[in-house]
Amino acid sequence: MADLLVQREIAEILPSLTPYPPLKAKDWAGFTPGDRLYVQRENQLLMRGTVDDMVPDGSIFWIWIDGGGGRIAVHKDDDVRVWLAEEPSGSRIKRRFNGAALTPTAEVR
C-alpha cells in the first residue's frame, strides 16, 4: 500500500472531491495512459495514481498507485468511484468532457 505520508495527503483531498461527481464507467473509454486519477474502492482509502492501460471500450483500466501501491485493475462492475486528479492536457478525456468533470455539481436545496 501507499506510504502513510501519501495516504495522509490523499485523505485531506477527499472532502474537496465531494462537490464533483465521480466519472461514470461509460466515460472511462476517454482515459489515456498518463491521466492522473483518484480511485476509491468500496470502503477502502482513496488512492491516487496514473492510468497505465485500458481496454478499448473503457470497461477496464489499469492504474499505478502512488507511493509504491502497485498496479491495480479497475472493472466497471467493481464498487468503485473515480475522479480526475488533475486536468489532463492532451488526453481524450479532456476533449470528451471539456473540463466538465472538474466542475462542481450544483448544490441541491
Rank of each mutant, 00 (worst) to 15 (best):
M1S: 08
M1D: 06
A2N: 04
A2T: 13
D3F: 14
D3M: 03
L4G: 10
L4W: 02
L5T: 01
L5F: 07
Q7E: 13
R8Q: 03
R8G: 10
R8P: 07
R8F: 04
E9N: 06
A11G: 09
A11W: 04
A11E: 15
E12L: 07
E12D: 09
L14A: 03
L14R: 05
P15T: 10
T18P: 00
P19W: 03
P19M: 05
Y20D: 04
Y20I: 03
Y20P: 05
P21V: 03
P22I: 02
P22T: 00
P22A: 11
L23Q: 03
L23R: 07
L23M: 15
L23K: 02
K24W: 13
D27S: 11
D27P: 02
A29C: 12
A29N: 13
T32D: 07
T32H: 05
T32M: 08
P33D: 09
R36I: 11
R36F: 01
R36C: 03
Y38F: 15
Y38E: 08
R41L: 06
R41Y: 11
Q44G: 09
Q44S: 14
L45E: 13
L46V: 14
R48H: 03
G49I: 02
G49H: 01
G49C: 06
T50S: 01
V51H: 09
V51N: 07
D52P: 04
D53M: 10
D53R: 11
D53T: 10
V55E: 05
V55D: 12
P56I: 09
G58Q: 02
I60H: 12
I60E: 15
I60M: 14
F61Q: 00
W62I: 06
I65W: 05
D66H: 15
D66C: 05
G67A: 10
G67I: 00
G67D: 13
G67K: 10
G68A: 09
G68L: 12
G68P: 07
G70Y: 04
A73E: 15
A73H: 12
V74T: 15
H75A: 14
H75G: 08
K76A: 11
K76L: 01
K76F: 09
D77F: 01
D77E: 08
D78I: 01
D79N: 14
V80D: 13
R81L: 10
V82A: 00
V82H: 07
V82F: 01
W83G: 11
W83F: 07
A85C: 08
E87M: 05
P88C: 02
P88V: 03
S89T: 09
G90W: 10
G90F: 12
G90N: 14
G90Y: 10
G90Q: 14
G90V: 08
S91A: 11
S91H: 04
R92C: 06
I93F: 11
I93W: 13
K94A: 02
R95C: 03
R96L: 14
N98C: 05
A100T: 10
A101S: 10
A101Y: 04
L102K: 08
P104N: 01
T105F: 05
T105H: 08
A106I: 14
A106W: 11
A106E: 13
E107G: 09
E107K: 13
V108G: 10
V108H: 02
R109L: 04
R109K: 15
R109H: 15
